[in-house]
Nucleic acid binder design. Structure first.
Lengths: 191, 191
DNA sequence: CCTTTAGCCTACAGCCTGTAGACAGCCTGC
DNA sequence: GCAGGCTGTCTACAGGCTGTAGGCTAAAGG
């Protein structure tokens, strides 16, 4: 009756990540995961501390994977080429793995996800390097880029563009061009 | 024993909106609201259909209020002045009413929130009118602006800027300037 | 007054979380 | 080859939330 199902923290997390993509990050619960694994809910508490812990693990793994994807996309590129590769990689990741993307969007304890998060922002900073911005402006550019990509992908994945023309892909292409232009003609800070 | 508490759909929604700001949109439940109103959970089911309905009502009301705030901020302004008023109004609303802001960010049935949502995007479009963009580019500009403001506010309210320098307000000012510049020097579409 | 309406109640079924303790399969040492 | 310990999964349960059913009573209208 108690045949081993081969659960480990890692296997549980992997299954949770898949579940998040299948049903949405917010719908990941201990019970739902147990059903999918063919196991009683209580069994999972030996491996994760609870629903919150489960979700945190999904977030950390998703951030790591996003970092991998960005690193791969940026290898050997610079300037507008790098910018397009970066933003397209983020959008691709979000569209292909909606649950994981949602997971990267929830604030998570710095102690647990700090490294993965810092890696992503370092990669973004690297992608902008070819634009030759003044050093003190780089952080603003990273935030602009991060905010815009984040916001767009969020609106797109939640269907915000579904009922208006033209389609999201067209705006995405134009927005990338505008961002590239803005980075090349970065205005002085005359405060 | 059954003294009337004076509940109506409207009063319930107002209380729910306040609760959202106090504890976060995701934490709004029938039970939590009943506790706050000093009433049994079942009593609320005479006024709202359930937790989903409750949250939808919060979203609709928040979108309407956001529209009001934007309309007020934009009255009598144009160009960069209008742009700054617009983005500042959104950011202010989000900071002052975090729960309501979250509520505006969840996708909601078009039939229920369509008007309020359309009003917000119409106001944004109006704010950009002074920049004299080509008509077919306006939608892209609205989406760029919406995405950027959305993404920034989202990251800011979830504490994403808390552990890096300089502070969010500085980046916000710079980003507004960059957006203004991008709108004034909108690149041609050479696809 | 007295009836009707409508608001709030209690009770309950069902699901989810998280804890405690029982029990079975696997590994280790001998 | 086997005894004993460990580890993983189980059942059982307490507590909370959702949503339904049906009862009771305060207010409104004739």
């Amino acid at each position: 009756m108690a045949a081993r199902a081969g659960l480990t923290v890692d296997a549980v997390t992997t299954a949770a990540v898949d579940l998040a993509d299948a049903v949405g990050f917010e719908q990941v619960t201990v019970s739902a995961l147990a059903r999918r694994l063919g196991v009683q809910p209580a069994s999972l508490y030996s491996h994760v501390r609870g629903t919150d812990d489960l979700r945190t693990r999904i977030s950390v793994r998703a951030l790591e994977q996003l970092g991998d994807a960005l690193a791969l996309a940026l290898a050997g590129r610079a300037g507008r080429d790098a910018l397009e590769a970066l933003v397209d990689a983020v959008r691709d990741y979000a569209r292909r793995h909606p649950g994981r993307w949602q997971a990267t969007q929830v604030p998570v304890d710095v102690a647990q996800a700090g490294d993965a998060g810092r890696r992503v922002s370092a990669l973004m900073r690297g992608a902008l390097h070819g634009y030759g911005l003044p050093p003190q402006e780089e952080v603003h550019a990273v935030r602009l880029l991060g905010s815009t990509v984040n916001g767009f992908v969020r609106i797109e994945t939640s269907g915000g563009f579904d009922h208006s023309r033209p389609d999201a892909a067209t705006s995405w292409r134009r927005m990338t061009a505008v961002l590239d232009s803005a980075l090349r003609h970065w205005p002085d800070d005359d405060t």
